[in-house]
């Protein structure tokens, strides 16, 4: 056997060895965790988790009157029950649900509070609602953050001192203070100010959700601005000179030549920033926005299954961030191919 194939064999063996080590260590960690939970008598009840995503709830329709069931009318989608009370007044109950069970019959005498109809309906659980809110907040804040970031990024490299100083001030303030503090400022300071003023002028109040989104958007905007600035400055100066020497204006040179090239380089760090944003949205629970983390916390206090639920919560975030990173990778590939 040649020495090169011997070397290859050795490399293969070492690959397999370390692969096995990896799986052993991982299994050991999981097994260890499980063993410890047994030690403290924790009972795992994974079957209780799905109900917080989607659950079947039974709804009852009760009679509000006392009288005789005069008519039960079943149309294609609607059921109408007519009750004539002791005073001879006619009351109608209608129901548009599917799978309705009728609990009374024509001619029955019903009392107030008697059950007329029951039906089962699937409802979205609190965890799924939280996941949806997290997604919604992240998407809206990303879009605004992107717009703010692009404008600020350009302002940052502008030769106009006012634009430049505004951009620097904004970026430094945002990057120099904790997001949690910014959320508080948006909610307790700016939120109070704005909503109090709105009340004085008799206008509608802005719900806390939007202050939460604003805090995330301005936070992300500052980081996006730095990413945009770095991306633009990474493009060779020769590109600007070539485009300007043809008579293009600054704006034309930016839109047709510099920014399209910079954008490709911006995508990977941008992906990282948006993934951070999804995770950072977990702080919004602090101002009573029931996103995924707050939803999990609420479920944990009622269900007393913290271990399962916190793992589920982490996995849901992972699903969101992983999907996002796949999406941006796809976008990046498509841009390179075009």
């Amino acid at each position: 056997m040649s020495s090169s194939s011997l070397l290859k064999k050795k490399q293969n063996r070492s690959f397999v060895f370390w692969g096995i080590i990896f799986f052993i260590v991982i299994s050991f960690c999981i097994g260890g965790l499980y063993y410890c939970t047994l030690k403290i008598d924790y009972t795992w009840r994974w079957y209780r988790v799905p109900q917080y995503f989607y659950y079947n709830s039974e709804t009852k329709i009760e009679s509000e009157n006392t009288g005789i069931v005069d008519l039960i009318n079943k149309k294609d989608t609607e059921i109408v029950i007519t009750i004539i009370d002791d005073n001879g007044e006619v009351h109608q109950y209608s129901c548009l649900e599917k799978n309705v069970h009728i609990e009374i019959a024509k001619g029955d005498y019903v009392f107030k509070g008697d059950i007329l109809l029951t039906y089962n309906k699937w409802k979205v659980g609190i965890l799924l609602q939280g996941l949806w809110l997290t997604l919604k907040v992240s998407i809206i804040a990303s879009l605004f953050g992107m717009v703010i970031g692009i404008f600020t990024g350009f302002a940052r490299i502008s030769s106009n001192p006012a634009f430049k100083w505004f951009a620097i001030t904004y970026i430094e303030i945002i990057r120099g203070s904790p997001l949690l503090v910014q959320i508080f400022i948006w909610y307790f300071v700016l939120g109070t100010l704005i909503n109090t003023l709105l009340t004085q002028y008799g206008l509608l109040l802005i719900p806390p959700l939007w202050f939460g989104i604003a805090s995330l958007a301005t936070f992300t905007g500052a980081y996006v601005a730095e990413i945009v600035r770095a991306g633009i400055q990474s493009i060779n100066k020769g590109q600007t000179e070539a485009s300007r020497s043809l008579g293009m204006t600054y704006v034309q040179s930016m839109t047709y030549i510099i920014f399209p090239q910079a954008f490709r380089r911006i995508i990977p760090p941008l992906a990282g920033q948006f993934i951070s944003l999804v995770k950072d949205s977990s702080l919004l629970g602090i101002i009573a926005i029931r996103e995924l983390t707050k939803a999990t916390r609420e479920v944990v206090t009622t269900s007393l299954q913290p271990f399962e639920l916190w793992f589920v919560c982490a996995i849901l975030y992972l699903v969101l961030t992983f999907t996002l990173s796949m999406l941006l990778q796809y976008l990046e590939k498509r841009m390179i191919n075009s």
Binding site: G238, Q239, E241, A242, S245, I257, Q261, R264
Partner: peptide, 13 residues
């Protein structure tokens, strides 16, 4: 005024 550079500076995209 046309200008031609040492490093070409064509638009790569």
């Amino acid at each position: 005024v046309g200008m031609v550079f040492q490093s070409f500076n064509l638009f790569p995209h």
